[in-house]
Simulated scan of single mutants.
Amino acid sequence: MINQSNVLEKARAFIYQNARLLDRQRFAYWFEGGSQECVLQALAAYQNQDGGFGHALEPDIRCPQSQPVPTEHALIMIDELEAYDSELMDGIIRYLKGITHPEGGFPLAYRSLLAYPHAPWWIIERDDVANLNPTGHILGLLMKHPRWPEWEKVEWIQRSMRFVWEAMEKPEPGEYHEGVQWVSFLEHAPVTPQTSLAKEKLNAWLAKDGVIDRNPNAEGYVQKVMDWVTAPDSYAASFVTEAELDEHLDALIRQQSEDGGWPISFPAASPLGELEWRGALTVDRLRTLRAFGRL
């Protein structure tokens, strides 16, 4: 076991010195007795009148206009807080209804982002087609909401559910970002033969060599054990051993930078974007370490 006594102290200094207000409030909520309402107030600053989220909530998309992936990020934070009664949800549902493709699903992104700084992989040629990413994850998060029994009867949601099922008729996910869409959707979908078949395909893919990178010191944009297993109840937890978990948790602590934050494994859109990513990731890494009893 490696020394972890000052991990939280170093991370706290990094967050208060460098992170955006939203992640300072998240840190305060999770580790200093801060309020849920303060997190939600900070998150609300990223919401537009159409109910969607922009303003670089996803730090690699710097445009102010609403985009599907930043709206997905907002849902993740609302779910993280279990703040399902937040007024932010009314706007999110209104936005999602408005961007639903005629055949169901939501676009990956809109070309409005091209007028602003953005990471090079956000080059959008078409925004009139739906994409499993982020549709699957968004619907998975909505299925966790207490209002789901009401929402699942709504036509645009039923249309989007059909889109996801059709998208998962392929043999397996294509890569990590698609895989997490399968995970979120199937974790919360009703138990049916269709769900069981899709989980069989997902599980076979997760068990394949290289999907979950077992090397704790792997560099570059790879998805290692702690990217898949952020808590003991994570879907992918059954695909790693206790020894692998211990090894990767030790590595996660070692990989904390001297400044107290955790590094990102990809080039950011800007120096500010890098700090925003690192602040968010640092809160996430601390939550993972605490979930596994390392803080």
Results as ranks from 00 to 15, higher is better:
residue 137 H to M: 14
residue 156 W to F: 10
residue 127 D to E: 14
residue 190 P to D: 07
residue 146 P to K: 02
residue 140 G to A: 10
residue 146 P to F: 01
residue 192 T to I: 01
residue 123 I to S: 14
residue 168 M to F: 02
residue 183 V to H: 04
residue 176 Y to E: 10
residue 113 L to T: 09
residue 141 L to T: 05
residue 165 W to L: 13
residue 162 R to V: 14
residue 149 P to Y: 08
residue 162 R to D: 13
residue 159 R to K: 15
residue 144 K to I: 00
residue 193 P to L: 10
residue 125 E to F: 08
residue 143 M to C: 11
residue 158 Q to C: 06
residue 121 W to R: 11
residue 141 L to F: 03
residue 174 G to N: 11
residue 191 V to Q: 08
residue 128 D to R: 11
residue 144 K to A: 02
residue 193 P to R: 08
residue 172 E to L: 06
residue 113 L to Y: 01
residue 139 L to E: 03
residue 117 P to G: 13
residue 125 E to I: 05
residue 155 E to Y: 00
residue 148 W to H: 09
residue 114 L to V: 02
residue 134 P to S: 11
residue 162 R to M: 10
residue 117 P to A: 10
residue 188 H to N: 15
residue 177 H to V: 12
residue 134 P to C: 07
residue 132 L to G: 07
residue 138 I to R: 10
residue 142 L to R: 05
residue 184 S to I: 01
residue 135 T to P: 12
residue 116 Y to Q: 02
residue 138 I to H: 05
residue 143 M to I: 07
residue 118 H to A: 13
residue 121 W to M: 08
residue 176 Y to G: 09
residue 172 E to G: 01
residue 129 V to C: 04
residue 117 P to E: 11
residue 190 P to G: 11
residue 131 N to C: 15
residue 192 T to S: 12
residue 116 Y to L: 05
residue 161 M to L: 15
residue 186 L to M: 01
residue 140 G to V: 06
residue 185 F to W: 02
residue 193 P to S: 09
residue 178 E to A: 09
residue 137 H to N: 14
residue 147 R to D: 12
residue 185 F to A: 04
residue 139 L to T: 04
residue 147 R to H: 13
residue 176 Y to M: 06
residue 132 L to K: 11
residue 183 V to F: 02
residue 150 E to K: 13
residue 148 W to S: 07
residue 181 Q to P: 09
residue 182 W to T: 05
residue 154 V to I: 15
residue 154 V to E: 15
residue 176 Y to L: 07
residue 154 V to F: 00
residue 114 L to P: 04
residue 123 I to Q: 14
residue 171 P to K: 09
residue 134 P to H: 08
residue 153 K to V: 04
residue 122 W to D: 02
residue 155 E to Q: 10
residue 163 F to T: 08
residue 118 H to E: 00
residue 134 P to I: 12
residue 191 V to K: 07
residue 138 I to V: 15
residue 113 L to K: 01
residue 152 E to P: 03
residue 152 E to M: 12
residue 114 L to H: 11
residue 146 P to V: 03
residue 168 M to L: 14
residue 149 P to G: 13
residue 146 P to R: 00
residue 147 R to W: 06
residue 130 A to Y: 01
residue 158 Q to P: 00
residue 130 A to W: 01
residue 132 L to A: 12
residue 121 W to K: 09
residue 137 H to I: 06
residue 188 H to L: 00
residue 153 K to T: 12
residue 135 T to Q: 09
residue 188 H to E: 06
residue 145 H to Y: 05
residue 161 M to T: 11
residue 130 A to K: 05
residue 170 K to G: 13
residue 172 E to T: 09
residue 144 K to F: 02
residue 173 P to N: 14
